[in-house]
Design a protein around this nucleic acid. Structure first.
Length: 587
RNA sequence: GCACUUGUAGCUCAGUUGGAUAGAGUGUCAGCCUCCGAAGUUGAAGGUCGCGAGUUCGACUCUCGCCAAGUGCACCA
């Protein structure tokens, strides 16, 4: 007797899985009522399970056939020869509803997860490169709470793109150049702080932050200070060695603290090419603009006019000759295209800068860089916190009242730790686990809704274990791990009887697992980590319900159910990874 | 003034790309642990999908016009 290899079986079932809609379309077309293309377009997944796994509305035929849709469906249903893997077709009020064979579904999906593991649902390399510019904080300031959004959205997107087959260049475009450094230098010298090497090497961000605050304060009494700062930056830009020494020290101090926090959050980058990196690449850009006659003199400044796009002019150089944000972004865009030859270049930056990016992209267009269409601003809303009078407000940076990210992380960790001490005091490494859960909770709170929504941050709901939260999703993962641990052996697909995984709870869970590839695709296409955050909730819910309804250990169905537990854990772990959450195994 | 973003249950939000009776969480009320983590689960109540037209068999979804809130709009980034 010939045995069909597992490999062949999987390939066969996978093919059938991915083309259910096509198979249905073909089967329907065989009746002569629809053509296959038309039918495939109409087939959707109904919201309600009662209406099957796939549905085909027949309303569009009503006119051409001069018949009620209800009748059309009823006449069609008995004529349809069901493709493999489908168990029945039903005609209900104008819809043709198709039902998948539960056993077949369980078999094909679990075999696929068994074979592909964590990368189930991923796409193999497509040879394309995407640059993702995220986090990009300003040097000299500590990471504030609102920097979290770009960091976490970008971190998640970089993982999602990698899972979608892209080569990803993760870029931290540090704000390490610009007038801000003029301010720091002015203040540093004004306060007569020591400038010997030892002192400079030991500088901390905290001290720099104090300098910023005192600069703002001093400005109120002495408005001329702003000009002084601009002059100082201009001097730095033109190569003053002493200023350069100070700048290097400021940068190094900030970077040390940044790295510490990124490590803690599990965030990393391939390139720390900040704005200063493009310092020597800007003259060529300016020269090109001049040569092409795009740069004009206006009110003492050099600008590129963008009237034809209904946009305000883009400033290239200030009246003192120093460069601006846009100049550096132009140089950076051109450098990245040359260096990485990207197919896509993303900028994860808050919504407030939409106009700036529009301008930069259009200047590139005028420069004849037709790849400007591959660049995309990925905007997001701000983080709001509730004030005493109940109003949602932005955290403010200028007044220095903004919450520091490290304080927020510490507070979250403490809160989770207190909870662990109450529920599970003997847990090993509980400080680290508490920190991972705390960071995940904050991250999840940030990613669970659409990017463009403002995040209304509320401690109690973000760190709660109930509802749509990070801890809730992690708890589901932990419970699955716990059952696997207690089983004491590794579940194998050879021991599974798929007929035992067809009850309502198991079926719903399996159906949820089938959606992974589609959700990753959707998250990537729309640059929306929230798609996967919502999906993780769906998985957690279905998993909770399954282990609530279907006893695993000690049951007659143990081996089959344990395998479903394992498969679910694998899917959930990867989704948590894609979101940038820590998939903890105990808590 | 112009541009962009957002309006869905008391509150915080989903809504599978135009499909069937608009769904979760939270809060309120009522259930479920001799049983793998109750950090869970079941149910009740809660709606003019901002307003008004249009497109069509069908609109929370697409188009247009209003209204409200937020954010940008030439020497910060």
């Amino acid at each position: 007797m010939k045995k069909i290899s597992l490999q062949t079986r999987i390939q066969r079932s996978k093919k059938q899985m991915n083309s259910f809609d096509e198979e249905i379309a073909k089967a329907v077309a065989a009746t002569g009522a629809f053509d296959a293309g038309q039918a495939k377009k109409l087939i959707t997944v109904p919201a309600d399970t009662e209406h099957g796994n796939f549905t085909l509305p027949c309303f569009s035929l009503a006119r051409s056939l001069h018949k009620a849709p209800k009748l059309i469906a009823e006449e069609l249903a008995p004529k349809i020869v069901l493709p493999t893997g489908l168990s029945k077709v039903e005609a209900v009020s104008g819809y043709l509803n198709f039902f998948i064979d539960r056993k077949f579904l369980a078999n094909s999906i679990l075999a696929e997860i068994d074979k592909e593991g964590l990368s189930y649902g991923h796409i193999s390399p497509n040879g394309k490169t995407v640059c993702i510019d995220y986090s990009s904080p300003n040097i000299g300031k500590e990471l504030a709470f609102h920097h979290l959004r770009s960091t976490m959205i970008g971190n998640s997107l970089s993982r999602i793109y990698k899972a979608s087959g892209y080569k990803v260049e993760r870029i931290n475009h540090l704000g390490d150049w610009g007038t801000a450094f003029g301010k720091l230098i002015v203040m540093y010298l004004r306060e007569k702080l020591p400038t010997d090497k030892k002192t400079l090497d030991a500088l901390t961000v905290k001290e720099l932050n104090v300098l910023y605050a005192s600069f703002s304060k001093a400005c109120e009494a002495e408005p001329g200070l702003e000009d002084e700062a601009r002059t100082a930056f201009s001097k730095l830009e033109s190569g003053d060695e002493f200023y350069r020494t100070l700048w290097t020290a400021f940068r190094a101090a900030t970077l040390r603290e940044l790295m510490r926090i990124y490590d803690m959050m599990g965030v990393s980058f391939d390139h720390y090419t900040g704005e200063s990196f493009y310092e020597d690449k800007m003259p060529a850009v300016i020269e090109e603009l001049r040569k092409k006659g795009l740069m004009v003199r206006s009110e003492e400044r050099d600008v590129v006019m963008l009237d034809e796009f209904d946009l305000p002019p883009c400033l290239i150089r200030k009246s003192d000759g120093s460069t601006l944000y846009a100049t550096r972004d132009l140089a950076a865009a051109i450098y990245r295209k040359k260096e990485y030859n990207f197919d896509k270049s993303l900028y994860v930056v808050d919504l407030g800068q939409a106009l700036h990016f529009k301008q930069v992209f259009h200047v590139l267009k005028k420069m004849g860089r037709d790849w400007y269409t591959d660049m995309e601003h990925i905007p997001f809303g701000v983080i709001l916190q509730q004030s005493e009078d109940g109003k949602w407000e932005k955290g403010k940076t200028r007044t220095g009242h903004a919450k520091l990210l490290r304080d927020v992380i510490e507070a979250a960790q403490a809160k989770i730790l207190a909870f662990i001490n109450e529920k599970n005091p003997d847990l090993e490494n509980k400080e680290i686990i508490a920190r991972e859960i705390g960071i995940s909770a904050i991250t999840f709170n940030d990613l669970k809704n659409h990017r463009l929504m403002d995040v209304k941050f509320d401690w109690d709901s973000a760190l709660s274990f109930d509802g749509a939260t990070g801890p809730y999703v992690q708890n589901a993962h932990v419970r699955l791990c716990s059952i696997m641990r207690k089983a004491g052996y590794d579940a194998r697909i050879e021991d599974v009887d798929f007929a035992l995984l067809t009850d309502e709870s198991a079926y719903e869970l399996i159906k949820t697992l089938t959606k992974k590839a589609e959700r990753i695709r959707q998250a990537c296409e729309t640059d929306e980590p929230s798609v996967l955050a919502q999906y993780s909730l769906e998985i957690a819910e279905a998993a909770h319900k399954f282990i609530h309804d279907d006893r695993v250990l000690g049951s007659a169905e143990e081996k089959s159910r344990l395998f479903l537990v394992k498969s679910t854990q694998i899917v959930l772990e990867d989704v948590l990874n894609l979101l940038g959450l820590f998939p903890v195994r105990v808590m």
